[in-house]
Design a binder for these strands. Structure first.
Lengths: 209, 209
DNA sequence: GCCTGTGAAGACGTTCACAGCA
DNA sequence: TGCTGTGAACGTCTTCACAGGC
């Protein structure tokens, strides 16, 4: 396949495929067809083949895909063959829950440093042994700990300011849990995680759909 | 505008517009143009006008939109002119953080009941005064408390089972925080909130550009 | 002049359908 | 025969460009 633009949705699906493949490895499944993987991931089989085709040829005609190999290849495509250092800002309920969450570590994400604006929280040590730094030290500590991805768990009115500090580091990828659209220049990528937006979708569905 | 299918993305954006409009109300802004709102929401102005056009005419030519009115209309479209009752399952770090989170209440979402499989947690009262019920009682308690939207914060291997119980109630909308694709019949809508997928997107961006 | 509302054009992503190969 | 890989067809969403109206 020629060089072509890869849809953002393809990357999202690759991530979902990898999750499903991991489960299959655990279950001892060794070979999977696009049809079977499609059923598990609730997508069209052709979609899976096309998604993979952007990056090469991974299957065997008449057979399917070898689960372990495909998982390895997808993780490599996504850049998950290394550990990523996260910097988290805002140690409220949500921030602390994220730190304690097991899934991150399992996927190769590691919290390298934590920050809060509240001086009552600064200096406190978290269960993981991580120290809470004041926001003022964000740039310095992020550089020292090689933070590559910023996680924003602050109230919405503080999110842009934190993003600006991340840009200064520079951190070029931000996971934003605050319900605002953050403005960043090209070269920095923001992903938003917004529960309320999802809930609103459900409310709309229940109301109109 | 004729009857036409409304893109899912439109609903998501309406939710984002409403957030921006709320901020504008707080700031005392009374009129906004599609251009201005577009800047704040990082979208194309024509997109906003088209999104709104699916539902009617809300603006004044040569002027723009009245902030308060537009906010009211969008909330009505989304079905946010009522309170929605949530049922949450899985009172781990994340589940508890969600319960404590302020944003839900502010948008008209209310936790009506909570569940956990761990019998050590069952019977405990949460800070909000909400009692943790055993999962066995899900169907009954959801019916009694008029739960309309189910929130799944369990480990992935339990998510489908919980979804099945929700379907029994029946709860026709599910917000799923577990990193698996849940299978549901038509008539039930699932929205997934998956941090790891978002992080994988960022990792890919940092790796491949 | 300015900004909304909207048909038409364009870009993009998904699905089909079949050729190619084990 | 069975399943992948892929160009072509299709459908959907977004953007343009301008008519309509304050």
């Amino acid at each position: 396949m020629k060089f072509m633009k890869i849809p953002a949705a393809t990357i999202t699906r690759l991530s979902i495929y990898s999750r499903a493949l991991e489960a299959m490895v655990d279950e001892g499944v060794t070979v999977v067809s696009s049809k079977h993987l499609a059923d598990v991931c609730s997508v069209n089989p052709a979609q899976i083949r096309k998604d993979l085709a952007y990056f090469g040829q991974f299957g065997v005609r008449g057979v399917g895909y070898f689960v372990k190999e495909l998982l390895f290849d997808i993780k490599k495509i996504l850049g998950l063959n290394k550990q990523w250092n996260l910097a988290i800002v805002g140690m409220g309920n949500l921030g602390c829950a994220l730190l304690a969450h097991q899934n991150f570590a399992k996927q190769g994400y590691r919290f390298a440093c934590a920050f809060d604006a509240d001086l009552m929280k600064v200096g406190r040590k978290l269960a993981t042994g991580l120290l809470i730094h004041p926001v003022d030290e964000l740039v310095r500590v992020c550089r020292e700990t090689n933070a590559e991805i910023g996680v924003i768990c602050t109230p919405p009115d503080k999110a842009q300011e934190i993003a600006n500090r991340f840009l200064e580091v520079p951190v070029k990828a931000i996971l934003n849990f605050a319900p605002v659209q953050i403005q960043v220049p090209d070269g920095c990528k923001v992903e938003n995680v917004d529960f309320t937006v999802k809930l609103d979708n459900l409310a709309y569905h229940l109301t109109a759909g």
